[in-house]
Design a protein around this nucleic acid. Sequence first.
RNA 1: GGGCGAAUAGCUCAGCGGUUCAGAGCGCCUGCCUUACACGCAGGAUGUCGGGGGUUCGAAUCCCUCUUCGCCCACCA
Length: 880
Amino acid sequence: MAYDPQPVERAIYKRWLDAGVFQPRPDSDPYVIVIPPPNVTDILHVGHALNDTIQDVVIRFERMRGRAAEWLPGTDHAGIATQNVVEKKLAAEEGKTRFDLGREAFVARTWEYVRKTGSTIIEQLKIIGCSCDWSRQRFTLDPEYAAAVREVFVRLWEEGLIYRGHRVIHWCPHCLTALSDEEAEHHETNGNLYYIQYPLADGSGAITVATTRPETMLGDTAVAVNPEDRRARAYIGKKIRLPIVEIEIPIIADDAVDKEFGTGFVKVTPAHDANDFEIGLRHKLEMPLVMSEDGKMDGDRVPKELRGIDRFEARKKIVKLLGPLLQKTEQHHHSVRRCYRCDTVVEPRLSDQWFVKMKPLAEPVMRGYDKTEFTIVPDRWRATFENWMNNIRDWNISRQLWWGHRVPVFTCTKCKHQWADRVDPTSCPKCGGPVEQDPDVLDTWFSSWLWPFATFGWPKDTPDLRRFYPGHTLVTAPEILFFWVARMLMSGYHFMGNRAPFRTVYLHGTVRDTKHRKMSKSLGNGIDPLDVVKLFGADALRWTLIAGSSLGADVILDPNDLETTFAPGRNFANKLWNIGQFVLGQLPKTVPAIEAMDRRRLTLADRWILSRAQAMIRETTASLEQFRLDEAAKRCYEFAWNELADWYVEAVKPRLSAGKAPEAAAILAYCFDAALRLLHPVVPFITEELWQKLPGRNAAELLAVAHWPGARGELEDPVADREFSRVRTVIEQIRSIRAEYRVAPKTRLRATIVARGNDKPATFQGEMDTIARLANLDNLEILDNHGVRQGVGAHAVFGDGSELVVALEGTIDVQQECRRLSDELGRLEQQLTNLATRLTNESFVARAPKDVVAREREKEKAWRDQRDVLAGKLKSLGCS
RNA sequence: GGGCGAAUAGCUCAGCGGUUCAGAGCGCCUGCCUUACACGCAGGAUGUCGGGGGUUCGAAUCCCUCUUCGCCCACCA
C-alpha cells in the first residue's frame, strides 16, 4: 500500500499548531531566525520553497536540540511591487489610474487588497511545513513597525546621516519613481553607437561625438575632451552649434573622458547621465531636462515636433532629423540598466531625493566582519561583500510612490524651516506657520533593513527584543546580499549597540531549470511548489530541495518532468512508510528500553545496526551543524533504507515473529525512532506520523519537540562493523553467483564457508540462519582452515583469504568458472602490483603518514592470502 | 573592464585535509508479485573525473594555462 501524504500532512500540521510547538520554549536558550519576508502580494514559488525549507530544517533541528526556537515570519509591504499590482488591477477592472482615485483612496484600496490577499503566501508556507512562530507574525507596515521606521529616519536625520541630494538618479519611467543603484539592474544589450557630427560654431568644420543615446543630445550643454588628447586638445574653448536645438555650447576639457573610446569627443548631458552630471558640476554647466517623468521628450529645449514622443521613438526620429550629420552607426555591446520591478529601461534623471550617508554605517560592520562577529557561508562571498561595502555609495531612499512609509520630513510653508519628526506636527515649531509633509515614501528596504529588531518591538525595550536580539542565522539568496543583508548588518550595528543581527549568513543557491536559467514566470519555466505537494506531498518537495542542494550551490530542477524530479523524495517517503508498517506490525505494546537490554544476548546483526545508528547520529548532527543539509539528509536515507531496511530488518525477521527476542524489538524500535528523529527536520510530516505510532507514545508527545538523539559511545562497535560486513559479503557473493549461473531464484543451494585469518567461523555461525535465508540456502557448512573440503561448485574468495563454495554439481561449467576465477585473480594481481610498487618505494614508506602505510600493509597481506587461495583453486580445477 | 562559480556515468549531482575515491539518485539491462514496500527486491553495465602543462612517491582532488557555460560588480559615452 502506498503512502498517501495529503491527509496526513493536513492533520499533522494542525496538531503542531494546536500544541503550539512552534512558539519558543519559555525556559531555554533562544535560537532565532527571521524569515526573509516575502512580498505581501507574492504567491509561493519554488525559490521561496527552497529558502523556507532550509530555514525550517535549521530551526527544527535547533528546536529538537532543546533551544527556544524562534522563527519569526511575516511579509513585506513591497512598495513598488504592490503598488504596481494594485494599479494594474485598477486599470484592468475600472480603467482608472491611481491619479483618478487620489492618494488617500488609492492607499485605502491597496490596504484593502493587501488585507484580502496578504495571507496567501503565509498559508502556503504552512502547506510546505514551515514551523514559524505564527504568534509573532509581522508586516513591515504594522503600526509598531512604522514607528520603528520613523524612529530610525529621525535618528539618522539628527545624526546628519540623511540629506537632500540634487543629482542624477535612476528613474523608472514606468513606475514613476526614483530607484536606488541596487534596484537598477545591469542587462547586457546589443545596441548601436551613433557617430554624430556637431558643427563648429565658427563654421570652421565639425567634430564628431559617439553616443548610444542620440535622443539625449537635446540636453547637451557641452562637448568634453580629455586634456591629454593631442587631436582634440586644439578644440578646447571653441564652441559647437548643437544640431536640432540650434544653440551654441562649449567644448571643454575633463579628465573623465576616455581618449581611446569613440572619437575622443563626448557629448555632455548633465541632466540625463550620472557622469555628465559630474562633469556639469565641475564646469558649472546648465542642466536642462529634456524628458518628462514618463520618458517622453519634453522641456524648453525640445522642438515642438518632438515633444510628447517616447524616448525610444524620439531616438529614431532624431537620427532621421540629423540626416548627413549622422556619420555612421556601429553595433555596440553594452549594458543597460533596467528597473528590477518592471524591467523598463531606467532613465538617468536629475532630481532631488533623500539620501543616507552609508560610509559611517558600513565601517562598524566591516570591523565586525574582520573580527568574525558574523560569518557568511560559503566564504567565497567574502570578496563580493567586502568590495561592495568598502565602495559603498549613498543610498537613495525616497520613492515617488504612494504605498509605503511616508517620509517624515516637514517643511514650514512660511519660514521654510525643514525638519524630521517622530510625530506629525500641526504647526512650525519655529514660527508657528503651517507645515507640509514631504510627499514621497521610503524605499521598501528602508523598512526591511530593520527586520531583525523592529519585529521584536524596537525602539521599545521589550522582553522579546532582549531575548531574541541578536539572532543566529539568516538564510537567504545572494541576490539580496546588498539589498537586504548588508543593510540589516548596518542597521544592527548602528542601532543595536554595535551588535550584528545574526552570527551566520547562509547564502543558498538559486533554483534553475535544466538549461540553468532562473525559474521565472515570464520564461514559463517555473515549478509551482503546491503542484508538487498535491502530486507527491510536501515531504517529497522538501526532500528534493534539500538533498539536491549542496552548500550554496544552485539547484537544478526539470519543470518538464516533475515525476522524475521529485520521485526520490516520494519514493523515500513511501519507503519510510513501509518500514513503519513493518516495524509497527512487529513491535509488542511495550518495548524494553535500549539501556535495559541484556547485551550478552545480542547477535552480530544487533551489534552492527546499533553501531551504524551511532555513526548516523554523529555524522548527521555534524553535517547539520555545518549547514550541510544535503549530507545530513542523505546519511539518514542511507541508514534507513540501506542499513536498517535492507539488512537489519531482513536479518531480524524470524526472531521478531517468533517473539522470543525482546532485544530485537528494542533495537528495531530504537533504530527506527532514531532515524525518524534525525530525518524529522527534512521530512517532518511522515516522520511525525510514524513516530506517533511507536509503542509507548502518548498523544501529547510530538516529534517536533522531541529531543535530538545523542550518539552512545558504548554502542559503537568497530568489530561488529567489520564482521557483519563479512556476512554481507558472503550473502552478496552467493546471490551474485546465483545470477551468474542463472540458478532459479527458488532453487535452494548448498554452500560452504572456510573462514581464515581474522575471519572466525564463529562470526558466520552466529548468523548462519541469516545467511541461509537471505541467500536461499538449504545447507550451510562453516569450516575453519583445517577443514578444507573440495567440491564441485562456484568459488569466491574474500576477507583474509576466506573462501566461499557454492555447490553447483551438474550446473557448473568448469570453463566458465575458470574464466571467472582467473579474471578475479588477474584483478587481484594488478592491485597487488600497484600496492607493491608503492610499498617498495622508499620515499612512500618514508613520507606517507604511518597509518596510511600500515593500512597498505594490511591490505597487501589480505590480498596476498586471497590470491594464494584463488591460485590454488584454479589449479585444483585444472584450469589452464 | 574587474571578481566569483561551474565543467565527474545518458540526466541531476556528491567526492576537492593526496594514496579501495571513481560514488549516489534517476534512467538503462537481467531476473523476481521472496506475506512492509513493484513509489519495491536481487543481480548487472556505464565514466581517458572539460583540454594541456606542472608539483609530488602518488592528483577529480594542489598550482599554471586554455576552452565552454553561468553569476555578480563597474561612470568607456
